[in-house]
Design a protein around this nucleic acid. Structure first.
Lengths: 258, 258
DNA sequence: CGGACGATTGACCTGGTTCAAAAGCGGTGG
DNA sequence: CCACCGCTTTTGAACCAGGTCAATCGTCCG
């Protein structure tokens, strides 16, 4: 059982029992989605305010600590999950244990969309996270009742496909330095947090994980980061935050063999 | 203009002009899709027989020799194409000329689905091919009028995404021998043609292309094929056909480091 | 304070690339 | 029909980017 609900979450409110706290709970439950941090993202963005109660009824949020599995490669795909907060890594495992991280998921991303019967990858929390569960059946019902959801799903899948193809390009062609620079720039494009007027990226995952994403050993990653730092292109502010000091320089390292 | 129509293909049949040959042409035009070799595949499979005339009106087939571009990375995405026959390679190019093939497309595959404004990759014929053009606007109209098309598109994109993630695993983790074996097995799973009772695969693309797909130089590919042949796992029947003699052996080479 | 684990650095090794050359193998024209 | 030409494929030998192994250094936590 890779998923557990640690917060308030009555499965189905019993019909009688008209006590004040319960009513409040139900009301809070109904409006939950409207104040969710993923409200404007992912699948939820496809729904109008009026449809939110329906979504709230179909979904169930849950909190997880780090290093917890949300979906497991090969297991029967019974639900999808929207990331509400935190970060997860998605990876595939070879029989002998080698792992390849295919992506990281953050708020708004949907996890566990499966082509066939079972999940194609494992999703594990990198930091403490909140994910919102929607059963496949509910999703199907939601889609059927609201075509915009299907459209949104198609758009999201297409974006993911495009990202996957970029990653194929990275893994198939690029050198270690190019991979790391590309990764930093792509991360920087997403997180807009500035430090001293320069963009910076938050990397809560371990260096091993970043390496497993870029097809590199952590040692190699470490060496490349050192070179980039020595070249004045980045500054390591802490173990999990890097400031990008020279975007043009990084851009150059990202494609031209240097 | 990367696309040209080499066969019979009146753009829009003029309204008057009731002459016998023209009428025949229009009739043939209307039923074109029903006898198409891609009829049961790709997007076309989502349509009922009654809807085929609409599809025929919206689409335009064209023949191409090998080494022709169908869509070009970065160009404005104005249409999608269904492969009717032949084979194409899809690739991305780095500024310095390095190319990574992200996939090969055969009958039924749809090419040119774009996330944003422009194509994300280049599609070039590997063999003489026939592709069927549908403008983005027509596709949108088709989708809107028939929700099944959108569902089909989602399913196809999901399958492609899954394949892309498998390729990421291959490029990120596997050794040269593992990549080649995996590729042969995957190809064998598709083409069911037997030679002497053993499965065989048809590989019309050049060794350079196969290498560019697997993240290997052609020299490396050649060496690995030699080893597989010496190990009795494959036989090279001709330059473009390989017989798979030992599926179990290949399966072993595909994952266990050997 | 001690122990454990992740990150870093150094030294060495190797799988795959690179460079160079030979061998196939269509295609073309005499 | 065969000789020639240009291209892809194959093979050989040397090289190198990144992997591997091992030691050290932080840093967090009990």
């Amino acid at each position: 059982m890779p998923f557990s609900v640690a917060t308030t979450a009555p499965t189905v409110a019993p019909v009688p029992m008209p006590e004040a706290p319960v009513i409040e709970k139900i009301a809070a439950e109904k409006s939950r989605c409207s104040t969710c941090s993923a409200r404007a993202k992912g699948l939820c963005a496809a729904l109008t305010p009026e449809q939110l109660p329906e979504l709230a009824a179909a979904s169930r949020p849950g909190d997880l600590l780090s290093a917890n599995l949300v979906v497991n490669e090969g297991e029967k795909a019974e639900a999808v999950f929207t990331v509400v907060s935190g970060m997860l890594k998605l990876y595939k495992t070879l029989p002998d244990g080698r792992q390849q991280i295919t992506g990281f998921a953050t708020v708004g991303d949907v996890i566990g969309l499966a082509v066939g019967e079972s999940y194609a990858y494992t999703a594990e929390t990198v930091t403490a996270s909140t994910v919102c569960r929607v059963s496949r059946a509910s999703l199907a019902r939601l889609m059927e009742r609201n075509p915009a959801v299907q459209g949104r799903l198609l758009a999201m899948t297409s974006v993911e496909l495009s990202a996957a193809q970029d990653q194929i390009l990275l893994l198939g062609c690029k050198t270690a330095a190019e991979r790391v620079s590309s990764f930093l720039l792509a991360s920087g494009r997403r997180s807009k947090r500035l430090v001293d007027g320069k963009p910076s990226v938050f990397l809560p995952m371990s260096k091993v994980d970043i390496g497993a994403y870029l097809g590199l050993r952590p040692e190699t990653l470490s060496r490349v980061l050192r070179k980039l730092e020595d070249a004045g292109q980045i500054t390591r502010l802490s173990n999990d935050r890097i400031r990008l000091d020279d975007l043009d320089g990084l851009e150059a390292s990202a494609t031209v063999s240097a």
